[in-house]
Design a protein around this nucleic acid. Structure first.
Lengths: 372, 372
DNA sequence: ACGGTCTGGTAAACTGTTTAAGCAGTTAAC
DNA sequence: GTTAACTGCTTAAACAGTTTACCAGACCGT
């Protein structure tokens, strides 16, 4: 029951608190005595309201008072207490980032880029960023909602969510400011910012077809993500347009990881030994595919062209360097942040943005070999 | 001047705030009306103090009152406002993580592991984690101190700091709870938790010497990190103990990155073509070294043994798999978190812990080849 | 001299908690 | 027989800001 305080630790917080206060009568924490607005007001011979208005650049304050108060502020080294500010203003200026509970979510370049974009932009917009891991119990116990209800944050980013996360739906209903980053739910009325997977996939298909490929396989990632389905749909549509085969044998699931890419390659080669091009739903799977192809004695791109998706850092340096679709992940994060801040500030129009992607042509693709 | 509000954005916050309030008279944010302690108290016919004590499991509250109040709390769906709690209790229960301003700090497995450890443990201890990037201006403008002065956080973790970061010194003087994670400053009185680099290096030297190597080179990382110097010192000491050469030609700087490892390998091979073992200060450099050695026509471990440091995920899967020192980075982060929380709660003894490391023997090392 | 409108400021109410101090009755210790 | 320490609860003062309503004086026209 005590967890309505979010307090699952040993001693009663209340006791700990009082003990510390007694020990240090004139409330100090880090050596520096804390100065409050009242003291500034006293020294400047004005009211606290005036000090507050000075800090907020309220036009009703005269130049003279401005300067007088600012001088005292500097002299005393006063800093407004943001807890009090937030309590009063109802804005915390903190945003939460919900990350999937993968053990290595932080070391993943995909999330890393999104996170960098979010953090940089948040900083520039005067907001702080808080990390949350979407652990099962975290979702069950509606701790997510608590984040808002208890006024921890003004808004939230959801990274790495997909159809298997029912909480998103509940959450959407609660109506707190939230934006899905780089995924979306066509039938939920949720704000989102995504990279344009469809256009990226179109470009991949264009280049492969133009290079003369006709035996093209798709290694796709988790089908529970709408973006992955988008890629699949484009693949199928373009293949059909070109009058090419696309039965189930031509696609395989690589679970978005390197080993999955290798395994999927095995499947494909098994079913279609004459494949000349593999389109992987992300770079890691593409890498796995390349490695496996080489192991199987096929040269890349000589025998088989490989195209990735994401354009993560390392892929420019592997051998052969990987042709891939660049996703502006940093920008997706940054833009999501911008829009979320606007929404927090009261903007009500739905957020749904698609950022352009582009093909990066490198060495893992070539014109289809004579032999096919 | 308005930046004493930390507010560098367009419109005056004050105005934005008031506008929103007018628009939405009975203060609502996400659909759910917000319930305060007063309302709970009223409905339960007790004072707010009683409600507060119920929430804090104060033993002076009778069972009956407990139940009565809790029922109302559940009925109204009341959640304590943590801004008010923090304002009153002086504890925010938020910790900041200071990361180096590397563009890809988040995608780095090194920081990723530390961060995971910190976040998981913080969550379990009922604390939130806030991200901060140590950008130059962030440090210059003492925004770091503001984090504490303005009561954003109770404590801070410093990741990736080294001797070239003078702010650490100033910061230490201010006396706010802070702990250096996986680095330390012998002559500064700073709290720290590190992996035991010395013992790790000892183990590496032991195994290399036992395998009969006598021509051992060290590719070290940034010498501005004490941990890197520790490795260097152990290397030198053990080589001297064994009566082996360790002049400057036997060490090279690889700047902790893969390309640096490759370049350092060139230098070493150039000066000592008869080298039989390379000890790299981290796995990335070791990987760079392995690649370069193969490019130069030397087999690993046939001609040259390579040992890394860190034990990052991928290195178990490269070929040959890398012998390396496992750093318990996740645990370092978690332990640092535990100790920081204790310190925030008033514990005053200096924090300085060294977590055990161990060698992971894999395929990149072998007994020295007959030829040398 | 008198009402009207600015101007620059203040006092007080408000945000939602925690906690010290107190209250009146009971019980135990000295 | 007085002091002291419980009991379960309340009152009121913090905590540190924002914001609204009001006010005194200057200025202006009539």
């Amino acid at each position: 029951m005590s967890d309505s305080q979010g307090n699952t630790t040993e001693a009663s917080t209340a006791l700990v608190g009082s003990k510390m206060r007694q020990a240090v009568p004139p409330r100090r924490q880090g050596g520096a005595r804390r100065v409050s607005m009242r003291e500034v007001a006293q020294q400047a011979s004005v009211s606290v309201a005036t000090v507050s208005m000075v800090l907020n650049d309220n036009p009703r304050i005269s130049k003279a008072t401005q300067i007088k108060v600012r001088r005292i502020i500097d002299k005393l080294g006063y800093r407004p207490n943001r807890l009090a500010q937030s309590l009063s203003s109802q804005y915390t200026r903190v945003l939460a980032v919900l990350l999937p509970p993968l053990r290595h979510a932080f070391s993943d370049p995909y999330f890393g880029e999104l996170l960098s974009g979010i953090c940089d932009r948040a900083d520039r917009l005067g907001h702080k960023v808080m990390l949350e891991s979407a652990k099962p119990d975290f979702l069950r116990e509606r701790k997510l909602l608590e984040l808002f209800e208890r006024r921890f944050v003004d808004g939230m980013f959801c990274l790495g969510v997909n159809d298997r996360h029912p909480f998103v739906k509940d959450f959407a209903a609660a109506g707190f400011p939230m934006v899905c980053v780089n995924n979306y739910f066509p039938d939920l009325n949720l704000d989102y910012v995504v990279a344009d997977y469809r256009s990226g996939a179109e470009q991949v298909m264009n280049v492969l077809l133009q290079l003369g490929h006709k035996k093209i396989a798709l290694i796709n990632g988790a089908p529970e993500a709408q973006t992955a389905r988008d890629v699949f749909e484009v693949f199928t549509a373009r293949m059909n347009d070109a009058g090419l085969e696309t039965d189930a044998g031509w696609t395989a699931d690589g679970r978005f990881i390197e080993e999955g890419g290798a395994a999927a390659t095995d499947e494909i080669i098994d079913r279609h030994p004459d494949v000349t091009a593999i389109f992987a739903g992300n770079d890691k799977m593409a890498l796995g595919a390349m490695h496996r192809l080489v192991e199987l004695g096929r040269s890349v791109p000589g025998d088989v062209s490989v195209v990735g998706f994401d354009d993560i850092q390392q892929m420019a340096f592997v051998n052969p360097s990987l042709t891939t679709v660049h996703l502006p992940l940093y920008e997706v994060g940054a833009r999501a942040c911008e829009l979320l801040v606007q929404r927090v500030r009261g903007k009500t129009d739905k957020i749904s943005e698609r950022l352009a992607t582009h093909l990066v042509l490198r060495d893992s693709t070539s014109i289809v070999s004579g032999r096919s």
